[in-house]
């Protein structure tokens, strides 16, 4: 009788990936199909901004993903510190580059969305600036992963930094908002106002879910990569120690 799959065990997790990924890929494809159709074809232009409001269907979901992935990374970081489990390390490490990419996408679409309205590619608006600071934190995390050699130690150190970052994000958000109102900049950037018409809310929801499922799929694959990367490292060391045993005892031959 097969025991309950213990997903903390890497081998079981690899089987989960092989089973789950085709499913989530299909769901992601369907959601994107519907989402893009709604976003581009089936929703009205904004009475003020006109067509550029369609960029919101990329900008808002990617901002949501930037936060969502940071939460995923922080919980994995918590798992690393509390249970010291290599799978938590893999979840945490694989989430960082994905989070960085979505945050970058959020910044670029924000800049593209703002350009027609303000005439410049970048405005230090409170929300955009907070996402930008989050982007700097993500870059710091990815850099920290690349500098520490030993995976176990790296995971614990990055976990600590991630959690410290998590505590600081609300503080940064508050201070950036205050900073923004302090220097009341000329243009106020309205991100789709409080009451969004239903016709705009629907595409937004679909696009957000498609982004989320895209992340889930990529994250599962990336976790598998991290598990295999750690296995390659272990086997390389094994090969090194195996190499140790084969010191050719050749001093019997005369010197060439």
């Amino acid at each position: 009788m097969r025991t309950m799959p213990n997903y903390a065990n890497p081998a079981d997790f690899l089987r989960l990936v092989r089973v789950a990924v085709p499913g989530t890929t299909a769901i992601t494809a369907i959601l994107f199909g519907i989402g893009l159709y709604l976003a581009l074809l089936d929703s009205p232009p904004d009475y003020q901004q006109g067509e550029t409001v369609r960029i919101m269907y990329l900008h808002v979901p990617s901002a949501w993903m930037a936060m969502f992935i940071y939460v995923v990374m922080s919980s994995a970081a918590f798992g690393t510190l509390v249970w010291r489990h290599p799978l938590a390390d893999a979840v945490q490490k694989s989430a960082a580059p994905l989070g960085t990419s979505f945050t970058f996408l959020c910044l670029v679409t924000g800049s593209l969305w703002g350009k027609p309205e303000w005439g410049t590619w970048w405005v230090w608006d409170a929300r955009l600036t907070s996402v930008f600071v989050l982007f700097l934190i993500y870059l710091g995390i990815v850099a920290l992963w690349q500098v520490i050699e030993d995976p176990g130690k790296a995971a614990r150190l990055v976990a600590i930094f991630t959690l410290v970052g998590a505590v600081n994000i609300p503080i940064i958000k508050f201070s950036v908002d205050w900073w923004n109102t302090l220097h009341q900049s000329a243009s106020v950037f309205r991100m789709g106002g409080p009451t969004i018409a239903m016709s705009m809310l629907l595409p937004l929801i679909f696009m957000t879910f498609s982004f989320t499922f895209l992340f889930v799929t990529l994250h599962l694959l990336a976790i598998r990569n991290e598990i295999l990367r750690r296995r390659v490292r272990r086997l390389s060391m094994l090969a090194a120690s195996a190499g140790e045993a084969e010191v050719p005892v050749i001093f019997a031959e005369p010197a060439e």
Partner: peptide, 19 residues
């Protein structure tokens, strides 16, 4: 490059967002 980005990024917070 990251350090360069951070240095550039912190200036507006000190000077203000006025482009």
């Amino acid at each position: 490059v990251l350090f360069f980005l951070c240095l550039v990024a912190i200036t507006p917070f000190a000077v203000g967002p006025d482009l």
